[in-house]
Design a protein around this nucleic acid. Structure first.
Length: 611
DNA sequence: GAGCACTGC
């Protein structure tokens, strides 16, 4: 039964000018690439165009976003434009939340959800159209989806696919899909003036001084330029590498006492409430000091200038050392341009780069894609589970190096998920059905045989989220003191268990409001505690479904640690001297000072994470 | 003696 919805395209959106062109291209081609910057309207209008063409009737229109928040808010916007309720004709699904119904014809979701669905339904039979949005972000999920979709298209001639991307590297997507047509849509952005102000090491200035100098220059530039403009001083966005750098620079900037100016930190670990401060109206000027969250995840409103020191932390896996790390690196040109673009959204902007134009020109054009920077065990496990055949011949946009693939297979062998010849065994099949890292999945399986699944479920969920313990700058001691209440003297893994048990006891007794207060008093993030419980619940249900054995009696600690060890064999270490330990591959490291084992000099330890 | 960012049936 076709659903009739009133469809119109807001005149002011650039994409609305191209509706008939896009319709024609979609009718004549199976795949279409749409390039357009922020504000082009592609995200909200493309699903409507599909609907207009009669799609979303035979099957759903799938529309993927890289983040949960985006999936929810895009869903809301489309529902508003179509004048329907969220969850009816237009719904969304993200982890823990499925707000769709039988009458849904557009389904917003994270790309991770679509990927997970492929495990059960490789042909994606419930969809007649798939829109992969923000494909330029090139996450592991997106790359895997684009590879699978390429194989799928000939098997589903009725399926239409739209790939959208910022206007970088459109040809690459087109080439991947048999020279699919490209339609470019302009964005609604303003020009950004870029200035290069290299930090001169010879002058012995530190980053703070360079940033202060840049801010002063910015203010002067604005005054000169302001003759023709309205007299609103816009806000400044400064990109920094991490929490500590933000703290240091904030301190230095506050000392400068810029008149009528507020310094605002922004990073993902802040509570929602603290993050929301950037969206609140304010008088005077604001200088926002942010990590990379402001590059893609959070759009800070009101920014008219950007200061870009040109570095960021980037997660990298080394096949040689078997370790995932977070080094600070020079960012790519694409990333620098994305940062600059953050100040051209409401008025012409100014971007000051704290490096030379030469330096910029010599940088790589694009950031290395995630698939080249990460351990492939999880991707390979999923591919084996789907029986995709030879991994070498899977049509990745960028093929991972053979040695990275071999390393991923080796990890799976070490976990006992595949045979010596690289085939998935029974253990591996079950692991592939668990929504966690293969190492963690292996721990759960081991725990099932060692009568400690209950406990290991709590620990694995804890390791899958960000640490719920908070340590505010001005209350570090008070926080440490409270956290010690939950500390197990011999094991940080068991500390998680102790925290969980305490929290559960309180949760049974308290109202939600009281529980929030309990969290505040004990320096725990309520939001992350909730995420912990949600992941735990999801994993618990899945383990039950997969037939893992739950223990009725409390487990013995030895068994808990043996189970964790089964997943983390490469992270055992022996005491060397003083605070130093020697791990596998002769790696030397120290224990994190927050650990209960920090100064204990144990003979052997098992590290949850090494960096 | 101390913390980049996302994400999953």
């Amino acid at each position: 039964m076709p659903i009739k919805l009133p469809i119109s395209y807001p005149q002011e959106l650039p994409l609305s000018q191209k509706v008939s062109e896009i319709k024609q291209a979609l009718e004549q081609n199976q795949v279409l690439i749409v390039g357009g910057e922020t504000g082009s309207g592609k995200t909200t209008q493309l699903p409507k165009i599909c609907l207009d063409l009669g799609r979303g009737q035979q099957g759903l229109i799938a529309h993927t976003q890289p983040r949960r928040l985006a999936a929810r808010s895009v869903c809301q916007r489309i529902a508003d434009e179509l004048k329907v309720e969220v969850g009816k004709e237009v719904g969304y699904q993200v982890r823990f939340q499925n707000i769709t119904s039988d009458i849904s014809c557009i389904k917003l979701m994270t790309d991770g959800i679509l990927l997970a669905e492929i495990q059960q339904d490789p042909l994606l039979k419930q969809y007649d159209t798939v829109i992969i949005d923000e494909a330029h972000e090139r996450s592991l999920n997106i790359d895997f989806l684009l590879g699978h979709l390429k194989n799928l298209l000939p098997l589903r001639p009725d399926l239409k696919l739209i790939i959208t991307s910022a206007t970088i590297d459109l040809d690459k997507f087109s080439a991947h899909f048999n020279q699919a047509p490209i339609i470019e849509v302009s964005g609604r952005t303003f020009p950004v003036d870029t200035f290069y102000r290299p930090q001169l090491e010879a002058e012995d200035k530190d980053l703070a001084e360079n940033i202060i100098a840049a801010i002063r220059e910015l203010f002067e530039l604005e005054q000169k330029q302001q003759k023709g403009h309205k007299n609103r001083k816009g806000d400044v966005l400064v990109f920094l590498s991490g929490e500590r750098e933000i703290r240091d620079i904030a301190q230095a900037l506050r000392k400068e006492k810029f008149s009528n100016t507020e310094i605002l930190p922004l990073y993902a670990r802040l509570s929602n409430k603290e993050q929301n401060r950037v969206f609140q109206a304010h008088t005077g000027r604001r200088i926002v000091l942010s990590t990379n969250v402001a590059e893609t995840s959070i759009t800070v409103p009101g920014i008219t200038s950007v200061i870009d020191p040109g570095t960021a932390r980037l997660s990298r896996y080394s096949v040689r050392s078997k370790i995932q790390r977070l080094p600070i690196e020079a960012i790519s040109q694409a990333s620098a341009n994305q940062r600059a673009g953050r100040c051209g959204r409401i008025a012409p902007g100014i971007c000051i780069r704290l490096y030379s134009e030469d330096d910029f020109q010599q940088r790589p054009e694009f950031t290395d894609t995630e698939i080249t920077r990460t351990n492939l065990a999880s991707v390979i496990l999923q591919m084996l589970n789907m029986d995709l055949g030879d991994i070498d011949s899977f049509p990745f946009l960028d093929k991972p190096e053979t040695k990275a693939i071999n390393d991923g297979i080796k990890v799976l062998q070490e976990l006992g998920a595949v045979t010596d010849s690289g085939e998935l065994n029974k253990t591996g099949k079950i692991m592939a059905d668990m929504p966690v890292d293969p190492r963690y999945a292996r721990m759960l399986m081991e725990a099932s045989t060692r009568a400690c699944l209950q406990e290991v479920l709590v620990i694995v969920s804890a390791m899958s989220i960000q640490d719920p313990r908070e340590r505010p700058l001005d209350k570090q001691q008070a926080a440490d003191e409270k956290h010690r209440l939950f500390q197990h003297p011999q094991s940080d893994f068991l500390s998680f268990l102790q925290l969980w048990q305490n929290f559960e006891d309180e949760r049974q007794l308290l109202t939600q409001n009281q529980l929030r207060k309990f969290c505040q008093r004990h320096f725990l993030s309520y939001v992350r505690m909730r995420e912990w419980r949600e992941i735990h619940r999801q994993l618990h249900l899945q383990c039950r479904k997969l037939g893992l054995k739950e223990n009725r009696e409390p487990a013995n600690e030895e068994n808990i640690h043996q189970s964790i060890l089964r997943g983390l064999i490469v992270q055992v270490a022996r005491h060397h001297e003083e605070l130093e330990y020697i791990g596998t591959r002769n790696r030397k490291f120290q224990i994190f000072p927050g650990s209960s084992l920090f100064k204990k000099k144990c003979k052997w330890i098992l590290a949850a994470r090494i960096s």
